Amino acid sequence: MITVIEQAVQARLIATAPKVETVPVTLCYDRADPFAVRMAFPALATLEGVEVSWTFARELLSSGIRQPSGTGDVRVRPYDGDRTTIEFHAAEGVAIVLMVTGELQRFLDRAAVVVPLGLEHHYLDMDHSLAELMRGSC
């Protein structure tokens, strides 16, 4: 049974320091962390010159392709009928990427096969999470 979904997509950088217009981005969903998605940017697209990953709620991505969503470090909103804007806010500045909504929806559909929306809580390993939280406290 598949427990991890990865999908390569193209993102168009709208506002960022490096002079790169389009970069390959990797979307990742792991059943071990059922509420989250991870978006990894290659080194060539970052100020530090190293791969940077952002982890945020799967529901934020899902709702953001239909309506403006998010008020924190990650904000997602429809741009036009075919594209979605994702904003990443950090101390160093803001990066805005434009992605094809169909690719994001395809990724979300694949993730929903691994863990259906609304059933994420059934896939949490509370014993493991509690052990990780308590590790080193005794």
Results as ranks from 00 to 15, higher is better:
Phe35Arg: 03
Met126Gly: 00
Pro42Tyr: 02
Phe88Tyr: 11
Trp54Thr: 11
Glu87Asp: 11
Pro42Leu: 05
Ile5Cys: 02
Met126Ser: 04
Arg110Ser: 14
Ala15Pro: 00
Pro68Trp: 01
Ser63Gln: 15
Pro42Met: 05
Gly81Ser: 05
Lys19Glu: 14
Arg106Gly: 12
Leu61Asn: 11
Glu120Ile: 07
Pro34Gly: 09
Glu59His: 11
Ala91Trp: 00
Asp127Glu: 15
Leu47Tyr: 03
Asp125Trp: 00
Glu103Ser: 12
Thr3Met: 04
Val115Glu: 05
Val9Gly: 02
His122Thr: 12
Ala112Arg: 08
Gly93Lys: 06
Gly72Thr: 03
Asp33His: 12
Met126Arg: 14
Leu98His: 02
Asp73His: 12
Gly49Ala: 06
Cys28Val: 12
Leu133Ile: 06
Ser69Val: 02
Leu98Asn: 06
Glu87Lys: 10
Asp73Glu: 14
Asp127Gln: 15
Leu98Pro: 01
Ser62Met: 07
Gln10Asn: 13
Leu130Pro: 00
Ala90Tyr: 11
Arg12Val: 14
Ala45Ser: 15
Leu47Asn: 06
Val94Gly: 00
Arg38Ile: 12
Leu44Met: 14
Gly70Leu: 00
Tyr123Gly: 01
Val74Trp: 14
Leu130Thr: 11
Pro68Asn: 08
Ala112Cys: 06
Met39Cys: 15
Leu117Ala: 12
Glu6Pro: 04
Pro24Val: 06
Phe88Cys: 05
Leu119Trp: 07
Glu6Phe: 00
Gly81Lys: 00
Thr71Val: 08
Ala40Val: 05
Asp82Tyr: 09
Arg110Ala: 15
Asp82Thr: 09
Gly72Cys: 02
Arg12Ser: 14
Thr85Met: 14
Asp33Gly: 01
Leu117Gln: 07
Leu13His: 02
Ala90Leu: 03
Pro24Phe: 04
Ile65His: 07
Ala95Cys: 12
Ala91Cys: 03
Arg58Met: 05
Leu47Met: 10
His89Val: 15
Glu51His: 09
Phe35Lys: 04
Leu44Tyr: 00
Gln105Phe: 07
